[in-house]
Design a protein around this nucleic acid. Structure first.
Ligand SMILES: [Mn+2]
Ligand SMILES: [Mn+2]
Ligand SMILES: [Mn+2]
Ligand SMILES: [Mn+2]
Lengths: 148, 148
DNA sequence: GTAAGAGTTTAGCCTTTGCTAAACTTAATT
DNA sequence: AATTAAGTTTAGCAAAGGCTAAACTCTTAC
C-alpha cells in the first residue's frame, strides 16, 4: 500500500517543519522581555538610572505601553519598581540582560565581520539575536574570532 | 551648557535605537503572512493542492487558527478560498511566496555554509529569514557562493 | 443512497502588545 | 510656598494570534 507510505512521509515532514515554527513562536514570546531588560541595563549603566520615558523613547513606543509591560516583567520577577520611581532589575533580570547583551554583541559583530555597514549590523541584529540557537551563536563567535 | 549637549546626544541615541526596534516590529507584522504563503505554495507544488489541515499540521497550530488567519490573508489579497474548498494563492500571493522561498533558501544555505547541522540550519533559518535586510541577504548569498 | 470519516467552519474565550486621552505625582523654578 | 514642567499611571480601546468544543459539509465506502 503506497498510500500508507506516502502518509508516513507526509507526517514526518509535518513534524519536522512544525518544530521549526514552534521554536520561532517560542523565541518571540521571550523576545520583548529580553529587549526590555537589556535596554534597562544599558540605561542604568550609561546614566545611572532607567526611567520609563527613556525606555519608551528608545523602543519607539508610548509611555503607557511601557508601564503595562513593566507590570508583566515585575510579575515575571525580572524587574522592580515603586510607583513613580525609576526601574530596577532583579538578580534574575540582570542575568537575562547580561546574556542578552552577550548574544547581541556576538550577532552584531558577526554581521560586521561579514562586511555589512554599521547601520545594517545594528538594525538587523536587533531582530536576528532572538532566533539564534547556541550552536549558531558559537559558530558566529568563531567566525568573528577568525575574521576581525 | 553641557546639559543641552548631553540631551542632544541622548535624543540621537534614542532615535537610532528606536529605528532598529521599529524595524523588528514591522518585520514581525509581515512574518506570519510570509510563512503562510510560502507554506501554501510548497503544498501546492508538492501535492497539487493545499488544505487547511495540512497548513495547520505543518505550522503546529489548531485548524481554527488557520481558518482565522486565512481570512486575514484573503483580506490582504494574498489568498483565495471558497468555503470548504482548498486554498489558492493570488498573483500577489505567489510573488510573496517566491520571494520568501528565495530568502529562506539563501539564509538556510548560508547557515549550512557556516558549518551548522542540517537541523539547526532548518530551525534557525525559519526565524532569522524575516529579519534579514537586502544588504545582509546579498552578503549571505555571496558567502554561500564562495564557501560551498 | 446512506453512513462514516475527513476536513472545515463557527462561536466564544484568552493573552499580548500596541494606542490615546485624561488624571495624577514629583521635582524644579521662581 | 506656589506654579509649572516632566514624568507616570489609569482607563478604555483595538488588532493579532492563539486555543477548545460543537456544528457543519464533503467525499468515500458500503
Ligand atoms: Mn538585544
Ligand atoms: Mn532584539
Ligand atoms: Mn522575530
Ligand atoms: Mn519563517
Amino acid at each position: 500500500m503506497p498510500q500508507t507510505a506516502r502518509r508516513a512521509r507526509a507526517a514526518k515532514a509535518a513534524k519536522l517543519q512544525s518544530a521549526a515554527f514552534r521554536r520561532t513562536r517560542s523565541d518571540h514570546s521571550r523576545e520583548l522581555a529580553e529587549d526590555y531588560v537589556e535596554l534597562i541595563a544599558d540605561l542604568i549603566d550609561e546614566r545611572g538610572l532607567a526611567r520609563g520615558t527613556d525606555v519608551a523613547g528608545r523602543l519607539g513606543v508610548a509611555n503607557a505601553t511601557v508601564v503595562k509591560m513593566l507590570k508583566r516583567l515585575q510579575d515575571a520577577g525580572l524587574v522592580t519598581q515603586e510607583p513613580y520611581r525609576e526601574i530596577n532589575l532583579t538578580g534574575e533580570g540582570w542575568l537575562l540582560a547580561e546574556n542578552g547583551r552577550k548574544r547581541h554583541r556576538i550577532v552584531e559583530n558577526f554581521l560586521l565581520a561579514l562586511g555589512l555597514s554599521e547601520e545594517t549590523a545594528r538594525i538587523d541584529s536587533e531582530g536576528i539575536e532572538h532566533h539564534v540557537s547556541d550552536e549558531t551563536l558559537k559558530a558566529m563567535a568563531r567566525f568573528v574570532a577568525r575574521n576581525s
